[in-house]
Design a protein around this nucleic acid. Structure first.
Lengths: 325, 325
DNA sequence: ATGAAAGCGCTAACAA
DNA sequence: TTGTTAGCGCTTTCAT
């Protein structure tokens, strides 16, 4: 910028004015400055600008896995809102590792992102307290924060699962299995809670062998399906706790002679063609809502932190409507 | 940092040394500084650091749509490589709009990202020339750069499509349709080229009504399928140019009495269960290769820019092996 | 082992 | 309308 000023024969501040489109520069001076900028290939250094202004016009997003088809749309929605506010998005995956979540979130804070959106992997977010106090707006999404009070945007996991299981019950099932993600994941536990609630609503007992929480690795899920179908109290229907589980359950059930009913949490591409009944949540809406909340905070909105819950939607496509065999 | 120094009763530089783990500080001094850091909740401001050091430890990724299941894994792979090099990832979607691509890329350059990975939407990247000259390493991925010489990592679109169409021909088809993305997209054109090459290899004519390039919007693709199946020279097989097209073609073909063969470019989740034959490209490998190339450049590697092409893989699952009906 | 001073490139505040 | 000065928070250089 100094160079541009020298080349154009003007003061530093004049160049700054031109670069930022501020008023108070004659057309002629502006032209000379523009020429100097062109010929020197000058581009403003935003790092310096940030240092001076205190705002980075960027927000951070810590999610679990950018490659998961659930987080892609969420991420994109956050990006769109950020873009509308002139901000860039820095994002990283925690890989469901609390330490990595913290490392990432703090790295983003060190960069002085204006705001932070976090899909928690861990359950203790006190490490963010000083950052939030220091002015970094923070919104949690998909899962609630642990041990601190902060905004959160969630899907109704419990209610969704309850509705899904109720659908199976309505079609005559009494022995229903639940296969979910690791119990340390909030949504996994909530969905299990919904399952239990639905069973209780119908006054159905839950045999311990019908519930299986754990990794979403295909082998683990396949094993769980196998056990439920061949155990002492074989199930006639399965509720799958998320998209990863559903795809594996569908594959595991595909090869069998006896048809087993299935409802899965999360919609999946091509599920319509396979006739898979699902509880759909709107990932993009989740992201958009969280991002809008974040920017409202950045615009000075200062209410108490709140948790909001978005409804889920049952999409009946056949697999959940198979009667017990 | 000033505050920490005051609180610990030491000089500014000593705090800096502690924060950065540099040698030359007694254990006792270090302890005092650490205490001051704790009690003040101090966190280094990376913006200032960047300004001083000139390196931001971040890379930018401009892609088409973060929500597209093809770009999720690619993005994640880039992130992993960046993480291994201690860098953060800033990414944005161009939405297939050249202006937006440029805007994003230049915004990232203004932030002084160390490197840039671009999935081009446009065909003229001369706007990046000054940036590259100024030291921002740049690698193009999925599609080649336009009008400048730079590194690129591509999939073998032409060869892949050729192999896919050859598969259909090998199973007896002579009238084969091609439905692809917009002709301004490089991969769409390459895949069409592969289709034509395969037809020519087999000395088959290509009727103009068999080729349809355009938007991947479901209505457009459905219309194209309809026309090809009911036109004057009805096709018995379709080659779909990418994942977006494939899902719609599968849906369009699902309701028909006559079975039409299909091979799609890009693998899709659950394609195995639906028996969809595809030409798979490895999105993660594409991302990883590009990112590794980028970091080699950042480590001083300074060869001529090169284009590298990754092989694709035919996965036969049934839909491509249906004989003509 | 420790610290003082200079400066990274920019913008805010004020002066001319 | 234009320019000068100070300083954002850090690291680098050079003293001590």
């Amino acid at each position: 910028m100094k160079d541009v000023a020298a080349r154009a024969g003007v003061g530093l501040k004049t160049v700054s004015r031109v670069v930022n489109g501020e008023p108070g520069v004659t057309a002629d001076t502006e032209r000379r400055v523009q020429e100097a900028i062109e010929s020197l290939g000058f581009r403003r250094n935003d790092s310096a600008r940030v240092l001076r202004k205190g705002r980075t016009a960027s927000v951070g997003l810590v999610l679990e896995d950018l490659a998961d088809p659930f987080y892609g749309p969420l991420s994109r929605a956050v990006e769109e809102v950020a873009r509308a506010h002139g901000a860039l998005l820095i994002n990283g995956s925690s890989a469901e590792d609390p330490e990595r979540e913290q490392e990432l979130a703090l790295a983003l804070c060190a960069r002085r992102v204006d705001g932070l959106i976090v899909i928690p992997a861990g359950h203790d977010h006190r490490y963010l307290e000083p950052e939030i106090k220091a002015g970094i707006a923070t919104v949690f999404v998909d899962r609630p924060p642990g041990l601190i009070d902060a905004d959160a945007v969630l899907s109704d996991s419990c209610g969704g699962a309850r509705a899904g299981v109720a659908q199976l019950i309505a079609h005559g099932h009494r022995r229903i299995g639940f296969i979910g993600d690791q119990p340390r994941i909030h949504t996994a536990v909530e969905r299990l809670r919904g399952y239990r609630a639905a069973m209780e609503d119908a006054e159905l007992p839950v045999h311990p062998s019908w519930v299986s929480l754990g990794s979403t690795a295909p082998e683990r899920v396949r094993g769980a399906v196998e056990e439920m179908l061949t155990g002492p109290e074989p199930v006639t229907a399965v509720f799958a706790g998320n998209n990863r589980v559903t795809v594996t359950v569908v594959r595991a059930l595909a090869g069998r002679e006896r048809r087993t009913a299935l409802v899965g949490f999360d919609d999946i591409e091509l599920a319509d063609l396979l006739g898979i009944t699902v509880i759909a949540q709107d990932a993009a809406l989740l992201g958009r809502t969280a991002a809008e909340r974040l920017f409202r905070r950045l615009d000075g909105f200062n209410d108490e932190p709140a948790h909001m819950t978005l409804a889920t939607r049952l999409i009946a496509r056949g697999s959940g409507e198979i009667p017990p065999q």
